[in-house]
């Protein structure tokens, strides 16, 4: 019940003094109250919760988030690639391939076995 789902506004109307609309969720269309997002335009994405638009999705921010996530991964891959054989340093890997207890128990500067 508490879930909110993003959908696209395909109709805006005045329903006896209440700003209403139809919102498309990937093909499924439902009525929704738009009274709290009066600036919403046809084609805008809004988050619908129990039949009410509670937020307008900012398309620029949505794209930016995905770009940052993608770029961050690349930076990390680059950094990993520059680390060379240090990646296999056995002192910080436990037998089962999980993180060694010491990695988390010891403060960052105190980890053993680092060539750096």
């Amino acid at each position: 019940m508490c879930l909110g789902i993003p959908g696209r506004i395909v109709e805006i109307r005045d329903d006896g003094g209440l700003l209403m609309g139809k919102v498309d969720f990937g093909g499924v269309r439902k009525d929704a109250c738009l009274a709290y997002i009066p600036e919403a335009q046809l084609g805008d994405y809004v988050i619908i919760h129990v039949g009410f638009a509670i937020s307008r999705v900012d398309e620029d921010e949505a794209l930016k988030t995905l770009e940052i996530l993608a770029a961050m991964g690349d930076l990390m891959q680059t950094e990993l690639a520059t680390m060379g054989p240090g990646m296999d340093a056995p002192a910080v890997v436990s037998d089962d391939g999980g993180p060694a207890g010491g990695v988390f128990a010891a403060p960052a500067t105190g980890a053993p076995g680092g060539p750096a």
Partner: peptide, 14 residues
């Protein structure tokens, strides 16, 4: 993801 390695490399790189 090999968690120990990524966590480990963070340590090693410092």
């Amino acid at each position: 993801i090999p968690p120990a390695r990524s966590a480990g490399t963070a340590e090693v790189s410092r």
